[in-house]
């Protein structure tokens, strides 16, 4: 955004100094009350009983297994959506075909479906009473109330992130450079990795960062398919919920502080990418 120059060029069109000061103050107050204080409170409550209690809450085996499950879910969901997001973006940017608009809508569906509804649909497919339930039981495969269900739900909620960032970039940049590369004899894959990818890399990274934040923080969809088996099917957000319901507030907010640090890192990375991409 070139708002700096923009704002300066129309100083004559600005409100009086007092109006400006009041509006800025209202914005600061609103954002402080609604965003900053809640964020700070996480850390305040996590360290309420000192750093020792904080560290021991984090080294609890339940927390550790929640960390590994969260890393597993995000570690699968993000790369899967990266690969398929790039494939879909290439398809939608380079070709026109019947049903294209429908496909764009379908790729966006996970953003508009309630996470709870998403979780429920996976239970209806893979749960004991579900469509594939009898088959899965006969082969002794657990999806619901087990890690595969959590991974599937996480993939579902993060589908739109990469496509959404990459597709407009690919469309804006056109095909001429790719066509030149291929005229010079480069294969399709080589063209993608050497010509297209460098042009869209910041968009890709942006999508990955946002998808990762959502994957690690997802609650509704994962909560429905998890079954809340402590130390087995609890991701970090679910583990925070369990600790909170057990009145272990230091533990709950210690776990919450990990996810809050993740969100701060996400915001910093996002800003850096926006800055680099300019």
């Amino acid at each position: 955004m070139s708002t700096t120059a923009h704002a300066r060029s129309r100083l004559i069109l600005q409100e009086s100094g007092i109006t400006r000061a009041i509006l800025i103050a209202v914005v600061f107050a609103f954002l402080a009350l609604f965003l900053l204080v809640p964020l700070g409170t996480v850390f305040l409550l996590a360290f309420e009983k000192g750093i020792g209690a904080y560290l021991s809450a984090l080294s609890d085996p339940g927390t550790r297994s929640a960390i590994s499950l969260t890393l597993l879910a995000a570690g699968i969901a993000v790369p899967v959506n990266l690969v398929f997001g790039l494939l879909a973006a290439w398809l939608l940017a380079k070709f026109n075909f019947p049903g294209r608009a429908l496909l764009v809508t379908l790729l966006d569906v996970p953003f508009s479906v309630s996470p709870v509804v998403a979780g429920l649909s996976f239970v209806l497919l893979f749960g004991r009473a579900g469509l594939f339930g009898p088959f899965l039981q006969a082969h002794d495969i657990a999806v619901i109330f087990a890690a595969p269900g959590i991974v599937l739900a996480t993939i579902f909620v993060t589908v739109p992130f990469v496509v959404r960032e990459v597709l407009p970039l690919m469309q804006a940049q056109g095909n001429s450079e790719e066509e030149a590369a291929m005229t010079l004899g480069a294969s399709g894959l080589r063209t993608f990795f050497r010509v297209t990818l460098p042009k869209i890399k910041w968009g890709v990274l942006y999508g990955v960062v946002l998808a990762n934040a959502r994957a690690m923080g997802e609650f509704g969809a994962v909560s429905v398919v998890s079954g809340h088996i402590r130390g087995v099917t609890t991701t970090l957000p679910l583990h925070a919920e369990i600790l909170y319901n057990e009145y272990n507030f230091v533990g709950a907010f210690a776990v919450a502080s990990l996810l809050s640090m993740l969100s701060i890192a996400t915001l910093v990375l996002k800003k850096l990418i926006e800055w680099r991409a300019r």
């Binding site: 925070a240 996810l259 996002k270």
Partner: peptide, 30 residues
Amino acid sequence: LVRYEFPGRSLVDALVDLPFALPTAIAGLT
């Protein structure tokens, strides 16, 4: 954010996205 210049503007701009980045359950807890 668009019209005025003030110290901390780019910080405010980044902070606006916090609800996208912070897991919803954590927002609920705090």
